[in-house]
């Protein structure tokens, strides 16, 4: 089968971008979407044109590097997968497929389909951790954790940090990402000492990056490759409220966090 690709080409961060259309050679339907781009890029190279830049690495849906918006949908037509887990068989022979980068002010385009998502790292650096030094840990079984809490923490911890939630949200909000991080640690006993400090600091950092706000549309969860759900946003809002109240009554930990 063959398809036409309408691809966003942008030579650099400050350059103007535009769509260009390319006809693919004959494709095997079992090819992955990224393998199709590899094939197209090899053809472009031989024709003397610059290949399409796109972010990728593990190609098995876990590293969170790939970040295509395919026909308007982050990570393509299927649920619960990353762009690299999209296959050519999901498209029709002769179809024109539009491929664009994730679009959000905090995710500037670097080139073509590659965007800069280091904003997530900056949010993480103010609180996305448990402050434990190497070597200072007690025995792993010294604190039992209910399987239910642990499983829920894992639901959140699965986040691959791809940013599809931001790309899909009409407000380019990063609430699902941040809430997954806050939720994962907030559900575990190890995360309790810094729980409220963390939520204040991370939300503050999120706002500083210029992400939009949550209007509870649910688009983020619908495109999330790991199907992280909106409940984590609810939890984060609740933690935030508690943190504000704690700070109001002058709990020290909360105060420090707010400075972050």
């Amino acid at each position: 089968m063959r398809v036409n690709l309408k691809v966003w080409r942008q030579p650099g961060p400050h350059a103007r971008g535009e769509f260009k259309t390319y006809a693919t050679p004959d494709l095997n339907p079992d090819m992955s979407f990224l393998e199709m781009l590899d094939v197209v890029n090899d053809e472009l190279t031989l024709k003397g044109e610059e290949p399409i830049a796109f972010a990728h690495d593990c190609r098995e849906g876990i590293c969170g590097t790939c970040s295509l918006v395919i026909n308007g949908k982050p990570h393509g037509p299927h649920r619960a997968v990353a762009s690299c887990q999209t296959y050519v068989r999901s498209f029709k022979d002769g179809e024109t497929i539009t491929i664009e980068p994730f679009r959000a002010k905090p995710f500037p385009v670097i080139r073509d389909l590659v965007t800069d998502r280091t904003a997530f790292d900056r949010i993480m650096s103010v609180g996305g951790y448990v402050s434990v030094r190497t070597g200072a840990a007690p025995d792993a079984n010294s604190i039992p954790i209910s399987k239910i809490d642990s499983d829920r923490a894992m639901d959140a911890a699965q986040c691959i940090g791809c940013g599809a939630c931001v790309a899909a949200c009409k407000n380019a909000s990063a609430m699902l990402f941040v809430s997954a991080k806050v939720g994962h640690l907030g559900l575990l006993p190890q995360g309790q000492p810094e729980r409220y400090r963390r939520v204040l600091a991370m939300v503050n950092a999120m706002d500083d990056e210029g992400f939009g706000n949550c209007t509870v549309t649910g688009s983020c969860a619908a495109v999330c490759p790991k199907e992280i759900n909106l409940d984590f946003i609810t939890r984060m809002n609740r933690d935030y409220l508690v943190a504000l109240v704690q700070e109001g009554v002058g709990r020290k930990g909360a105060k420090e966090g707010a400075g972050g």
């Binding site: 448990v130 200072a136 840990a137 792993a140 079984n141 911890a157 190890q190």
Partner: peptide, 22 residues
């Protein structure tokens, strides 16, 4: 043995049994 302790302390959600242990 120390690695597991370290990871659990960081909040790595290892699989658990219903009793809450790893």
């Amino acid at each position: 043995v120390k690695i597991i302790d370290q990871c659990v302390a960081q909040g790595v959600p290892f699989a658990r049994e219903y009793g809450g242990l790893l």
